[in-house]
């Protein structure tokens, strides 16, 4: 084999190594995206678990608000039972509205605001809402990294070859932007 042959072989080896590293990068990005998804799910479930506890704790003090409490629990149960994207979407929105109303009403009960247990639960729910948001944000970051890798040249040659498709961003439909205004202070 002459010098030219060796050079050609070297180039081929380099291209194969490059293709392997691009492929592995795509796999790890796709896995990260999937993992980010499940993180959102974990936090949603946590939210569903926390709400009955809160209702249980405030139930006695808020004797005159049984309607609201019932609405919260029903909304929560619907969210847990929801199947499919459309149903889940509506159910979670309704749950948000119901808990929002509950938090607003709780402001009228100074004993509740001073209650250690209630404060802890409220902090937990707040943190869980934040975690859902941050998990979504991280998901979108991951999708962007995946999409950049899948769509930019020359990585897109490898991505197309092995069926990597861009991920879907997490947008919120306009209807959900109308969140009830709640004054807590």
């Amino acid at each position: 084999m002459g010098v030219g042959g060796w050079i050609a072989l070297g180039i081929v080896v380099l291209i194969i190594l490059w293709a392997i590293s691009v492929y592995n990068g795509l796999v790890s990005r796709r896995n990260q995206t999937q993992n980010a998804w499940s993180q959102i799910d974990v936090q949603l479930k946590r939210r569903h678990d926390l709400i009955p506890n809160l209702v249980q704790v405030v139930k006695d003090a808020m004797g005159y608000e049984q309607e609201t409490l019932k609405a919260v629990i029903e909304a929560r149960n619907r969210a847990v039972a929801a199947h499919g994207p459309a149903e889940a979407s509506t159910a979670e929105a309704a749950l948000t509205a119901a808990t929002g109303k509950l938090f607003a009403l709780m402001e009228n009960y100074p004993t509740l605001k001073a209650n250690e247990n209630v404060m802890q639960l409220q902090e937990e729910l707040t943190a869980t809402e934040n975690k859902i948001s941050f998990a979504r944000q991280f998901y979108n970051d991951s999708v962007m990294a995946l999409n950049n890798a899948v769509q930019s040249f020359p990585g897109n040659l490898i991505a197309g070859q092995f069926g990597f498709t861009p991920g879907q961003f997490f947008d919120v439909p306009d209807t959900e932007k109308a969140v009830p205004q709640v004054k807590l202070r």
């Binding site: 979407s89 749950l95 809402e129 919120v172 959900e176």
Partner: peptide, 8 residues
């Protein structure tokens, strides 16, 4: 599924 929670 996650959207409403975020909005909330």
């Amino acid at each position: 599924g996650a959207r409403p929670a975020d909005a909330g």
